[in-house]
Amino acid sequence: MADPNMQVLLEELQHRTEAVLSNLMNLSEEEFEQFADQRQRIVEQMQSFQPSITENNKQKIRDILSHDSVILQRMHVLKDEAGHWMEKRGAIRVQQHAYQQAYSVDSLFIDHRK
C-alpha cells in the first residue's frame, strides 16, 4: 500500500482542482497563478513517492489531469483578454501622444513685427 502522505497529497490536489473548476469563470489571473504555484508545490512533494505509486493512485492522477484542458482553456481566454487590453492601451497612448504639446512649457515664443 502507498504511503499515506501520497494519499494526502492526492486528496489536496484533487480538492484544489475541484475548487478551481467550481469557480472557473470567476477566478482572476492572480488566483490562477496561485493555483498553478500550489499545484507545482504538491507535484514536487509527490515526486519523492514516485516508486510507491499504485495503480489506484495513477488512476486518480489521470482523473485530476483530465480537467486540465478546461482549466487551460479558461487561462488562455484570460491571457487573450489581457493581450487585447494591452493593445488597446497602447493605441490610446499613441493617440494621446499625438495630441500632447510638442513644445517645452517654459519656452518663449517671440513674434517679430514686420
Rank of each mutant, 00 (worst) to 15 (best):
H84E: 15
I61E: 04
F49T: 03
Q7D: 15
E30R: 00
E87Q: 14
A91R: 04
I42V: 13
D68V: 04
L78W: 00
F32Y: 12
Q59A: 11
M1A: 10
E55T: 02
E55G: 03
L65D: 06
D63T: 05
F49Y: 13
M6Q: 07
Q95W: 09
F49N: 08
A36G: 01
R16P: 05
L78I: 05
L108E: 15
H15V: 11
M46F: 05
S48T: 02
L24A: 03
Q7H: 14
N5A: 14
S104Q: 13
S48H: 08
M1C: 06
Q100W: 00
H84G: 06
I53A: 10
Q14E: 15
S48W: 08
Q7A: 15
R16Y: 05
E33G: 00
D80S: 09
I61H: 08
Q40H: 06
K58D: 04
L27V: 05
D111E: 10
K60P: 04
E81W: 01
V77Q: 01
R41V: 12
I110L: 15
E29V: 00
D80A: 12
A91M: 08
P4W: 11
S107E: 14
L65F: 10
V43P: 04
D80R: 04
Q40N: 09
S28W: 01
H84I: 09
Q34N: 12
Q96V: 08
H84K: 15
H76W: 03
R39L: 08
H15R: 11
S104M: 03
E44K: 09
S104P: 00
A2C: 13
E81T: 02
E11T: 14
D63W: 01
I61T: 04
I64L: 09
D37A: 14
Q50K: 09
Q14P: 09
E12V: 12
R93Q: 14
M46A: 13
A98W: 02
P51R: 00
D68I: 04
Y103K: 09
R74V: 00
A102H: 01
F35D: 10
Q95V: 08
A102E: 01
Q73T: 03
M6R: 05
Y103G: 12
F32C: 02
V77F: 01
A102N: 06
W85C: 07
D68Y: 07
F32P: 03
H67R: 07
E29K: 00
G90P: 00
V70E: 11
F109R: 08
F35L: 11
A36R: 02
N57H: 06
H112E: 10
F32L: 04
R93D: 14
V43Y: 05
R41Q: 10
M25C: 04
Q47G: 03
Q14V: 10
H84D: 12
Q45D: 11
N23I: 07
A91E: 06
N56A: 14
M75D: 03
I92Q: 08
Q34Y: 04
V94T: 12
D68Q: 11
V43A: 11
L27Y: 10
D63A: 12
S69G: 03
V8P: 04
S66R: 08
P51E: 00
Y103W: 03
S104H: 06
H15M: 12
E30Q: 05
G83M: 10
L108P: 06
E30A: 02
R113K: 12
K79S: 12
M46V: 02
M25K: 13
E31N: 01
Q50G: 06
